[in-house]
Design a protein around this nucleic acid. Sequence first.
DNA 1: TACTCATTGACTGACCGTCGGTCAGTAATA
DNA 2: TATTACTGACCGACGGTCAGTCAATGAGTA
Lengths: 229, 229
Amino acid sequence: MPRVVKEYDERYAEFLDVAQRLFYQKGYDQTSVQDIIQAMGVAKGLFYHYFRSKADLLDALIERMADQAVASLQPMVNDPTLDAQTKLHRFFDSTQNWKLANKAFMLELTRVLYRDENTLMRTKIARAGVERIAPLLADILRQGVAEGVYDVEHPEESAPILLELGQSLANAMVDVLLNPPAAETDLEASLATLERQVRAHERAMERILGAPPCSIVMMTTEQLRAWFT
Amino acid sequence: MPRVVKEYDERYAEFLDVAQRLFYQKGYDQTSVQDIIQAMGVAKGLFYHYFRSKADLLDALIERMADQAVASLQPMVNDPTLDAQTKLHRFFDSTQNWKLANKAFMLELTRVLYRDENTLMRTKIARAGVERIAPLLADILRQGVAEGVYDVEHPEESAPILLELGQSLANAMVDVLLNPPAAETDLEASLATLERQVRAHERAMERILGAPPCSIVMMTTEQLRAWFT
DNA sequence: TACTCATTGACTGACCGTCGGTCAGTAATA
DNA sequence: TATTACTGACCGACGGTCAGTCAATGAGTA
């Protein structure tokens, strides 16, 4: 194998890029170190020159993903011209619409991530998401309390609760999405159940925030049905 | 190796018993099929005569654990002499006290289960717990609505939300429990944060239930501090 | 300025132990 | 005799190790 020398940072990023692509395609467990170095055209030892273990690479990758997520939300949260309710609404709506716009990719990714063997990667992503995004959400909550539209005693501690509520709803969606009922009538029944779950989550969130009923829309009926067409 | 023939059910239960003991001691990934058959004094092939894979054994084991958990809660939930508030209080208090009574074992088990390599097992246990126990909790919620002490629009869909809220609090506890601050002052700070998290979860739960503030106690200050002495 | 030469660190690839899983065959039971 | 609980040698793949290669860098010297 020809020897190609690169700078540390460039090589490091290359490992993360290739690993991310392969992990998204095949999952963490199903991607061997052999697969990664083969895709890069380098030798095994080089991998362990940059990472102490395969798990170490996963941690580094998720750290980078979390950084990117925070960076994409930060401007909106800091925008002084928006009120808290608008920010919270965008919080849900923009990510929801982005996912729907990339529906095919998201479905494929979900199918991979929700396999048993990828539980570690899925859990790490979820946890990093909550940990890093909670402070941003807490800012929105505090703003809402100051504006008098929310009533939350512990914004800092309530933010992660709300985010986990959101992930709980996402999990319920994925359950149906990955095991779609065969018959038409069964699908309608599942959609009705899902709709009730969405509403239950919305009511829960409103009450935690001290916001009036039906003031929060995490997902519209149209957005929900759009996933199943 | 001497050949010992047993009946199917007996051997099957023996596999589950030995696997549970080893998984609790060393974790799922760190327990090899070799470890299990060695502890039983049987050959490799026998394992695959009873289970299609190692993952299959884990599923069977967790199924059995969930059955036992439901069976231990069922009588209390069905007791017609108890009101809903009493049932919900026992729901938390009895499990909390049982865990504290078996503190040493629970700490050891937690240290194992919360290792990265055991994420699959931990997640499966949590998920099976929510799925199987949610119907029981939903019964309590419906009873509470009938008694006029709770105000929940969707009891069936709210039950899993409350259970996940409980697990979210448990995770926060474990975070501190497994990474105890070195200095005395740091520990006090962590305990204060933890206390706020407990209160935030209690307030969230009360509001979801439509119950008055401070009517729910998931964990007393004494119970919380008891974990750190 | 041109030439050494030691040091650094990116890089190679053969090798290792362990793992989950297979399968052809054996012995006990009904 | 048919069934089935059971054995154990064997397999390929995996994560990880390590002794050694080689290109670039820069300080010391003529």
